[in-house]
């Protein structure tokens, strides 16, 4: 045992310096040169100010905006300092009550009072920071947003379609809409009306 102490100590210190200090520093140095935008958090700038990260969802609640997924971060939704899912089980009454309430609210606000609500619009994401919704969830909101902004719904619908990202390389993941980018485009289109 004692003869193992020196190599154990020296190698732990060596690996701490190599894999715990030099390696992250080297990755950071290369990343800063090669991919500065991504390494720094994929910030979106509007009028010289950071309006968010395109990868991190933010809270949209008003009817003039496309909403993202319900967020389970606590105490406030879309708190990017404490990512969290709801961790509610599939038969938990708390989950079923929350989904029921969201579905009713969505139907009331959307003018689609009889249709079924897309599932991702009424279920909390894994991270609580999901920046995307499904194309179905975005289209569901078109009528409400168009009405609130006094726009023709075909124009808003076309905007949603333009912001629908296809599967990556035509093959990976699922089609999706980045909510922040869609709302920014909406703002640009309407000039902040």
């Amino acid at each position: 045992m004692f003869s193992s102490l020196r190599p154990a100590f020296v190698l732990l210190v060596s690996f701490t310096l190599i894999t715990g200090v030099a390696y992250p520093l080297a990755v950071t140095a290369v990343a800063r040169v090669a991919f500065p935008q991504q390494a720094g958090g994929s910030l979106v700038r509007v009028a010289g100010r950071s309006a968010g990260s395109r990868l991190i969802g933010q809270e949209f609640a008003g009817e003039r905006w496309f909403h993202g997924r319900p967020s389970a971060t606590s105490p406030k939704p879309y708190d990017a300092m404490v990512s969290s899912g709801s961790n509610l089980g599939p038969t938990n009454p708390a989950l079923l009550a929350a989904v029921h309430k969201r579905a009713e609210e969505e139907r009331a606000s959307s003018g689609n009072s009889t249709k079924a609500v897309p599932v991702d619009l009424v279920t909390a994401s894994g991270s609580g920071l999901d920046p995307h919704v499904s194309p179905a969830a975005a289209r569901w909101q078109v009528a409400r947003v168009a009405r609130a902004r006094g726009l023709d719904s075909t124009v808003v619908r076309a905007l949603v379609d333009r912001h629908t990202e296809p599967r990556q390389f035509g093959l990976l993941g699922v089609p999706r809409v980045n909510v922040l980018e869609l709302n920014l485009a909406l703002e640009r289109m309407t000039g902040g009306r």
Partner: peptide, 13 residues
């Protein structure tokens, strides 16, 4: 237009 399924706790992408 949507993957559907059990989306609680899952990410849209």
């Amino acid at each position: 237009l949507q993957p559907g399924g059990n989306m609680e706790g899952k990410e849209a992408r």
